[in-house]
Design a protein around this nucleic acid. Sequence first.
DNA 1: ATAGGGTTAG
Length: 815
Amino acid sequence: MSFPLLASSGTPPAPPPPTAAIPRPPPSLAQRVHIPPHIYKHPTAILLELCNSMKELHQILPQIIKNGLYNEHLFETKLVSLFTKYGSLNDATKVFDFAKLKNEPMYHTMLKGHTHYSSLDCSLGFYARLRYDNVTPVIYNFNYLLKACADNFDVLKGKQVHAQLILHGFSDSLFAMTSVVNLYAKCGMVGDAYKMFDRMPERDLVCWNTVISGYAQNGMPKRALELVVRMQEEEGGNRPDSVTVVSILPACAAIGSLRVGKSIHGYVFRNGFESLVNVLTALVDMYAKCGSVDIARLVFDRMDSKTVVSLNAMIDGYARNGYYDEALILFRRMLDEGYKPTNVTIMSTLHACGESKNIELGQYVHELVNQLGLGSNVAVVNSLISMYCKCQRVDIAAELFENLKERTLVSWNAMILGYAQNGCVMDALTHFCEMHLQNIKPDSFTMVSVSTALAELSVLRQAKWIHGFSVRTCLDRNVFVATALVDMYAKCGAVHTARKLFDMMDDRHVTTWNAMIDGYGTHGFGKEAVELFEEMRKGHVKPNDITFLCVISACSHSGFVEKGRNYFALMQEEYSLEPSMDHYGAMVDLIGRAGRLSEAWNFIDNMPISPGLNVYGAMLGACKIHKNVDLGEKAADKLFDLDPDDGGYHVLLANMYATASMWKKVAKVRTMMERKGIQKTPGCSLVDLRNEVHTFYSGSTSHPQSEKIYAYLEKLFDRIKAAGYIPDTDSIHDVEDNVQEQLLKSHSEKLAIAFGLLNTSAGTTIHIRKNLRVCGDCHTATKYISLVMKREIIVRDMHRFHHFKDGACSCGDYW
DNA sequence: ATAGGGTTAG
């Protein structure tokens, strides 16, 4: 079934849009005031009629004065009209004040000028003056005033004007009622607008369009589309014109229905609206928002004339569909062709810069913002903040934020998320508290940002608090918030709580499923991850590339090599998803981690694309676990050909050599790091105690309980050694034996565990968050600690979770 | 006719 707009397909092309669609101009001056012909036909009067700009007007002015026409009513009215038209309300006011005869048309022109160039109060003040001068108002005066109220979203003043209008006997006027419908619609009161509309004895096209666009602009796109159907069905029905089309295209974009959109396009085509820029621009926008960037571009390319708005719609269309390069190319072309970018252009472009991490262009746009005088536009600055955060320059973003005079909720949200995504968790949380102190109410966006920060921090107590906060503010029902909460619980070690929340949700996005599947995977619950994925396949939410990344890595963490291979095939065969470099990396990890090193190498050799850093990194990691120096060196050679600046890979290689006691090679890696200026990320562990998060760096003695902790570790080491623990001193070289053990003892993770044991009562589970991967000695030591101390210890490292209990770890010793 | 901030993986 096709959309009813198509109902007219058999009939010949309709005539051009009815004139009712064009805003009705007031009657001409000659109609409303009697003007004697010698004045009306005066050459200067004709010149004034032809006048097209302020510059020309100033050229004509001396003639008017020279010919003594200044005090002629016609000239006064015309001057007031022209001055207001070209934006000089001051000059218009001078002429008006000087005029002897101030009649209604004269007042009307001034009123019109006020509605355009000054505040609503000035316009209303001017109406009061008109009344004071005993001029009888006409319907046009009210239409302008109502429009001014609507544009200022001021219902209260609008209602006062409405009362005046009734007082002067215009309540039955179709025009007046339409203006009132428009007032309510623009002020977000579509319900009231509709009531008024429903009471009208007769309705013209303009009136229908007003109420339709009211619904479209107030988040009720379906109602808007229904009304378009009704307007045609009604007796003596109205045919949608270009204005109707332009108001329902955004509605169509909002419901994302390409089918309805295409039928509207057909209607546009059959009715000859294809020559109208605004219609075509709305079509471009609709196609882009429905995900069809290619069709959007076709329509865009076929436009005879374009405006900035058309370009903005296309740039934004590219950016929102992930075609960042195309967005930036079009933006460059736009500048080359001499268009002046608007705030909308800037915002879409900054979005594209941020997502594609193009900070050079981002900074160029920043300069442009200042040149264009948009530096104090909050929305633009918010976009700048986001762009800098996405490009990992939180410092610049923070500076912009601090200097922002009128921060909005969006500014706070952008900043908090920026901190959260750049590892500045504490800054994110303090800003959240700060906005709380300033009495700014958080919304769902805020909750997502804070949950993201807490997920990173991995602290269950605060996680529960923010969950409670979301419930109390009813924000937990939002899919985005709920998904962020599921992810947060999983990342805080509470997978079962995460699953409970997941089961309670009635609307789930792909990301929700992905977060849960990955949660299971990182905890080593491969079986649960696979089961949930199978459940997902039965439902209506389609798995995406990230889903497969999560499933494959879940298989990898649990040693399900064949299952993982099957899923890798499935994603291509059944879901037509092209594996990315990350997928290949995950596959190498899957095969290699299970010890099938030559098979993993074989897999790399058969890759259809040139293997990236992560692929060789996974291979090297597997070789380190399984102590295969030969293959590890082979992987490292390839890896370092790609010149990584990531310290992690270097450390991995050095550790592999150290495990094999190849000290010269270890030293070589160290030299390479020094030469490249790469520093080893210091190991850092976090532990939460009541309301405080305690941070420990390797070897640090800065914690107030430091002495106690080291003393306790001495005793602890003796106990676990008695239980069978042997310190892994093999991987430490060029220091004496007793120093080796001291070095091992001062690993951040052991400090954090000791602190946790010292400060919690027997039986309490200890949660640790570590920034790097758990080292081999810490892993063994923690297993023994869990045994002798009878404690459950949960350690989250950069990749996954380790649940230590009764001397064993959930990861089965491969990590 | 276009409009700023959002969840997953690495």
